[in-house]
Write a protein that binds this DNA or RNA. Structure first.
Lengths: 143, 143
DNA sequence: TGATTTTTAATGTAATTGCATATATCCGTC
DNA sequence: GACGGATATATGCAATTACATTAAAAATCA
């Protein structure tokens, strides 16, 4: 918890100081950009990022309002939509990366060897693998 | 980030399902209890938990309102106060622990060997050692 | 087919967090 | 022993997040 709070605070602080959007926007933009021209469905994003559905819904509202993504109708599912990248979104993500990267380096790279960082990534990965969204957290309990 | 979100969501979900306060209360209560009968100063808590000052201030408001800690005047510093445990606070912390422990086990213990868990703790510790509160994040930037 | 359940996404409202700033005390120094 | 700055804590207000619920389309199935 503390390591996460520190890393997050450093990154958020740096992004803000640079007049850029918060970190979570980066993650969304990265996923959406990676998804290609057809974008992806909110529920896919939800699973990739492990965000709660209602948080993601409003997060997308904000990112869309800023013009970095667009919501398109989903052809094959009337309930759904596809989130696609805009040029402005691509641009802002590229602007964010150097700041983000610098803070990753400060918070992590500079404190661990390459080998240690890899081990850390592997161990944290084990905590995530096969797990599902927070929404399920309270329900998972009863299971 | 994802590992933290998952672990936190599981723990919060379990605590809530048990009708208990959120995880961060546990951490506060633990620190305060450990500090002994004289309690500790909010700024010490802030540093121990790496919480922002204004968040901690209000967090203490809530925990105090629930009757789990008390704010006492600080003899040797007129600006300050001492946060001390109440009996109700000790009781609730003890109630929270088994739930918390079970979720730690589910989220981490069950997914890592004892050795791996130790390595993880060590590596995360390296990310925290010698670092300071989030408040400093934006300022640390310019430094 | 039509009823029932599940999935996808949004939203009203309450709680929390973040930001900026305020207030009071303390400390060093001149 | 008054002054300027630093430290400790609180708070008004805006933004975000959590909770509970809703709405609508799909999937299941009797």
């Amino acid at each position: 918890m503390r390591a996460q709070r520190l890393a997050l605070a450093s990154i958020e602080g740096a992004l803000k100081a640079a007049g850029l959007p918060p970190l979570v926007w980066y993650d969304v933009l990265l996923e959406v950009e990676r998804a290609g021209p057809d974008g992806l469905r909110p529920y896919e994003l939800e699973r990739a990022m492990l965000l709660a559905q209602y948080n993601l819904s409003r997060l997308i509202d904000r990112i869309e309002a800023a013009g970095y993504v667009e919501r398109k109708l989903c052809a094959d599912d009337g309930r759904g939509q596809r989130i696609v990248m805009t040029d402005a979104g691509k641009a802002i993500r590229r602007q964010m990366w150097p700041i983000y990267a610098r803070e990753i380096e400060r918070a992590i790279g500079g404190r661990l060897s390459a080998e240690q960082a890899e081990v850390l990534g592997d161990l944290l990965g084990r905590l995530v693998d096969g797990r599902t969204v927070p929404k399920a957290a309270s329900k998972a309990l009863s299971a």
